[in-house]
Computed example of a mutant assay.
Amino acid sequence: MLKINSEKLRKTLIVFLCFWVAFFEGFDLQAPGIAAQGIAASYALDQVQMGYVFSLGVFGMLFGAFFGGRLADYLGQKKVLMLSIAIFGVFMALTAVAPNVETLYLARFFTGLGLGAAMPTMISVVGDEATEENRGKLNSLMYCGLPVGAISVAGLAILFKDISWQTLFLIGGLTPLVLIPLMAVILKDKQKVQVRDASAENVPNMVEVLFQQAQYKKTLPLWVGFFFTLMINYILISWLPNLLMQQGLERQQAFMVMLMFQVGAVVGTLGLGYLLDRLKLWQMAVIIYTGLFIALSLLFTTNVVAVLIIAGVMGGIFSTGGQSILYGISPIFYQGAGKVTGVGSAISLGRLGAMTGPLLTGKILALGLGTTGILMASLPSVVVAAVAVTALSRYKSK
């Protein structure tokens, strides 16, 4: 009985730690959107340059996810996760005190690099503790930290109207460093791959992990689903407050819609995680992408606050909730020593989409196409993502 309770406590603490890693990712993802006007004013940035501020962090995540996952397969999940949090925390704090725009850009890139390496490692850590029966539940409990972190930023902006953007970044950068000693005590590394000969039979290279033995039938749809789902999610996270203000909303009204978006994200992460354990993947795809299609159509075609609040909740449920489902299912498509590599590759493709979304939005706005142009670019992406995730349904037992 004591052994069972100890094992349950260990799993609980692991999910708890990973929840806080996700929390600070959510904090960082939302902070630039909330702080956009302050950052632009401090460094005299135009809309295209602000697109770089949003996207450079995501660009760093792309590299972090791709190489961090591979490193974790060799060096161990624990070491890579601790190092990732250290890099993320230091450079997010540096963002607050960057003396010029070049330093700001570098700080955003390295903040993303740390977060990017943390995410596939964290997902694999939780995935190692999961079964088919509780995969959705454990993943949703861990990943709901992301929208809760984003809610914290929006909540701070609403409660403290005069809070500076620098203060937000200092809070988000220094606080996660507290997690590192806790990880040192609680996490245990799985057996590492012994790298003596790159061609050794027990050391799969990246091509083998991702493409050989018909693995491409899983990898490619997973990549497409990640790319377009995260593209939409990051357009909303990065640009929604500014877009709503351009549609005529007051600053506090725009922040309220954004806050409700993140409330919806918590509901979606937990609710869709519950459904993942009970429905087939193609059914999940229909629910997620139909809801997202409707939410985008409402968000970018009206300035009625009540409707926008409803659309904001829906957007959070189906964009962030849909993203969490992709994170939850990605470990099941890869086995053994290459698992974190496979998950990391999918997340890095998602980060590429996440980087593309804010940049594309900045270009569309610079061309004067407004929210109509953003909507026309977004809706086809929703359809493509739905088809890709549906194609993966045959490889999941439920």
Rank of each mutant, 00 (worst) to 15 (best):
T121Y: 05
T121Q: 09
M122H: 02
M122D: 08
I123E: 05
G127K: 10
G127P: 07
G127W: 02
A130W: 05
T131E: 02
E132I: 10
E132M: 11
N134M: 09
R135S: 02
G136N: 03
K137L: 15
L138A: 04
N139Y: 14
N139M: 15
C144S: 03
G149Y: 00
G149H: 00
G149M: 08
I151D: 03
S152L: 04
A154V: 14
A154Q: 06
G155K: 08
L156I: 15
L159K: 06
F160L: 15
K161I: 08
D162A: 11
I163R: 04
I163K: 14
S164P: 08
Q166W: 08
T167H: 13
L168N: 02
L170H: 09
I171W: 02
I171P: 11
G172C: 06
G173Q: 01
L174I: 13
L174K: 05
P176W: 06
L177K: 04
V178A: 11
V178P: 06
L182W: 08
L182Y: 06
L182H: 08
L182D: 07
L182G: 00
A184P: 08
K188E: 03
D189E: 10
D189T: 02
D189W: 03
K190E: 10
K190L: 14
Q191L: 12
Q191H: 09
V193L: 13
V193T: 15
V193R: 02
V193F: 03
Q194S: 14
Q194D: 10
Q194H: 14
V195E: 06
R196N: 14
S199V: 10
S199G: 12
V203L: 04
N205F: 07
M206R: 12
V207A: 13
E208H: 15
V209L: 08
Q213T: 10
Q213N: 15
Q213K: 15
Q215Y: 07
K217M: 05
K218E: 00
T219M: 05
P221W: 00
L222D: 01
L222M: 06
V224Q: 00
G225S: 07
M231N: 11
I232T: 12
Y234A: 01
Y234W: 07
I235L: 09
L236C: 04
I237R: 10
L240E: 01
L240V: 08
L240G: 04
N242R: 12
